[in-house]
Design a protein around this nucleic acid. Structure first.
Lengths: 150, 150
DNA sequence: TACACTCGTTGTACCATACAACTAAAGTTC
DNA sequence: GAACTTTAGTTGTATGGTACAACGAGTGTA
């Protein structure tokens, strides 16, 4: 049904267009979901938590950000008391980042409202569709994980 | 297979996490794909073209941007000679935006490299998966189209 | 005619980001 | 083990994208 190259191109265009639209809207949506937390910081904090601690370099690689950007964001999170840095005893260059108790708490409350928004928005989807959509997104992002810096 | 509420929640979390990751990476990816065009401007230009002309207000609504932001972006596009404004004779407040010949050309060349990137990235996907993914994205975005400003 | 609404611009401030230069700690080579 | 190279992170600087607020001009309505 969708085997013609023509259809394939059309699907690619739709994917491209819709992903772009999503990315553009993401900022304002995020601002609505957690007006308190400095937006990007939230994302980084969530990733630190999800990984059960990580380095600034990992964050930079995962989100394709410059290390200077991450450095400042992490500094902001630390200033807010949401993140702690623990120097790695085996390598003095490395700082392992962990959420503080306050960080975990802030994350939980934000996560709750975020979940509610998603649950409402995707409420009419079947569980199978959700699972499939999640799988597609994982596959899509995984393909770009190691995309060359040029 | 995925009918338990538990599985549902997990899918929602994955979707949320992966969409966020995508949105965060989008900027650097876009910068790679068209270093010339001022990034956001490209998106707006593409939308103007896709709609065969539209107003600044439409752009603001579609991308959830402030009208001042759009105003400046459009001004930049006009300065670059990529967009023309035509006052609506029936309503002097309205400016209908259209790509110029140069705009269409710039868009085409950018679109080509963009398509190539997507084609490469999604090369291993079946046409059915692409179609399904496109459909999910459309559905997802449509659900947020009329999301309340609060 | 006055009031309210819509479309767009401009002033201002702020956040997120990149790039470059730098320090410090490890690792590598001879 | 001294000299180079690589890696982690910070800081200075510049820029781009954004929102909010105040405004101007055009349109509709009581």
């Amino acid at each position: 049904m969708a085997d013609a190259p023509r259809e394939r191109e059309e699907s690619l265009d739709v994917i491209q267009r819709e992903l772009t639209a999503f990315a553009r809207r993401a900022r304002s949506a995020a601002a609505r979901l957690h007006p308190d937390l400095p937006l990007v910081s939230y994302t980084l904090l969530a990733h630190i938590d999800h990984r059960h601690g990580c380095r600034a370099t990992d964050l930079a690689a995962h989100y394709m950000l410059d290390k200077s950007t991450v450095s400042r964001q992490v500094a902001a999170l630390e200033k807010l008391g949401l993140v702690e840095r623990h120097p790695d005893p085996d390598d003095q260059r490395i700082q392992v980042l962990h959420p503080t108790a306050a960080g975990t708490k802030a994350l939980a409350s934000t996560q709750a409202s975020r979940r509610a928004a998603y649950r409402e928005r995707l409420g009419t989807w079947t569980s199978d569709d959700l699972e499939q959509f999640a799988e597609y997104l994982l596959r899509y992002n995984a393909a770009g994980e190691d995309s060359p810096p040029q």
